[in-house]
Simulated scan of single mutants.
Amino acid sequence: MRFRAKIVDFGCLNNFTRIVNTISKLTKSCTLQLTVDNLYFMLSDKVASGGVSMWCELSQGSFFDEFQLEGMAPNANEIYLELIPENLLRALKTTQNAKSLKIKLTKKHCPCLTVAADLPSLSSNSRVVTHDIPVGVIPRKLWQDFKEPSVPDFDVSIYLPPLKTMKNVIDRMKNLSNFLVLEANKNGEMNLRIETELVSVSTHFKDLGNPPWVSTDGDGSKEGSQERTKMAQVHVDIKKLQQFLASQQVNPSKAICSIASDRTVHFILLHEDVSLQYFIPAVG
């Protein structure tokens, strides 16, 4: 079992650091799956206890100049690691001026991801800074537990407003309640709403647009119009939503929210060769 990779391009290193930063803000611990073509950061808490799920997929060719992987067996060319993303982020933050960065799987006192940065030096000698990040190697018999979260049949999918705008709204609302109603329809409208015994507050967004897979009735019939304006809604823990919005360093080109009424809300952020999915289950 071997893994080694190298980043030379400064922009790629910066982008990779931003993604790890996002992951570190979403979870204290996650699973890192390495394959020949992609890297996956995964989190799958127990939904029954109100846990969230995350799935972040990166195309390795968009970040690494060299990428070599030998899995546990010829017919299983993959490696699964338990990782504390904050530890990886700390290592990456010290390498932002590096001429190159190498990451490899090593065996020290325990399995480690060793990050070695070739830093600029005033002398002719190179200056290499090395970080050993402890990881846990997940045995093959447990790999089946780490699969992409299943996606339910959603009632509505809608493009999100600018994430910074949405975050500012949530930051104000969180002082009023622990829970929030998120609702949207097939007419490009979305509402963020709080209702308590003392106060009722809502923010409305219009003309957001719906992804092309959202069915619409093109004949303009009354039934079609009613279907498009019907709101699907979900009650969520406002702190989980705030954490998701506060974590974002991905700068997505597209951000989509999908609602399965009274079950879950699914966010997906897309940016070039990176996709981040985040599921927040409904409450009560």
Rank of each mutant, 00 (worst) to 15 (best):
E223L: 13
A232E: 09
K186Y: 00
A232P: 10
P212W: 11
H204Q: 13
Q233H: 14
D237K: 05
E195R: 12
F205N: 15
N187E: 04
N210Q: 01
A232Y: 09
S200H: 05
D237E: 08
K222A: 10
P211T: 04
K239F: 03
G188A: 02
D207F: 01
K222L: 10
H235S: 09
A232L: 03
N210S: 09
V199F: 00
S200T: 08
E223P: 01
K240H: 05
R193M: 09
N187I: 02
N187D: 15
G220E: 08
E197R: 01
S225P: 01
V236N: 10
L198P: 00
S202C: 04
K206F: 07
R193I: 08
P211Y: 05
S221Y: 05
K230W: 03
K240D: 07
M190C: 13
K186M: 10
Q242I: 00
V199S: 15
L192M: 12
D237Q: 07
E195I: 07
G188M: 06
T216Y: 02
S215E: 12
E227T: 10
S200C: 03
V236S: 04
I238D: 06
P212F: 09
P212G: 05
M190Q: 11
K186T: 08
N210R: 01
L241A: 06
K222W: 03
L192H: 00
G218V: 05
S215V: 11
L241Q: 03
W213S: 06
V201N: 07
V201K: 03
D219V: 13
N191F: 15
E227N: 06
Q226N: 13
S221T: 15
T229L: 11
E223I: 09
S202I: 01
T196D: 01
T216C: 09
N191Y: 14
S200Y: 04
D217G: 06
S221R: 09
G218K: 11
G188E: 04
K206Q: 05
E189C: 13
S200F: 03
I194L: 12
G209S: 03
L192R: 00
P212Q: 06
Q226P: 00
I238V: 11
T203R: 12
Q243E: 10
H235I: 04
S225Y: 06
T229H: 08
K206W: 00
N210H: 00
K186G: 04
D207S: 14
S225M: 07
S202H: 12
W213G: 02
S200P: 01
K206R: 07
D207W: 01
Q233M: 02
G224K: 07
K222M: 10
D219K: 10
E189G: 03
K222I: 14
R228M: 14
K230Q: 14
S225V: 13
E197K: 04
S221H: 02
K230G: 02
N191Q: 09
K186E: 09
P212T: 10
W213N: 13
V214E: 15
K239L: 10
F205H: 14
K239C: 03
N187L: 12
P211H: 02
N191S: 11
L192C: 14
D237W: 03
S202Y: 08
P212Y: 11
K230N: 05
N210E: 04
K240G: 01
E223M: 08
W213H: 15
L198W: 00
T229Y: 04
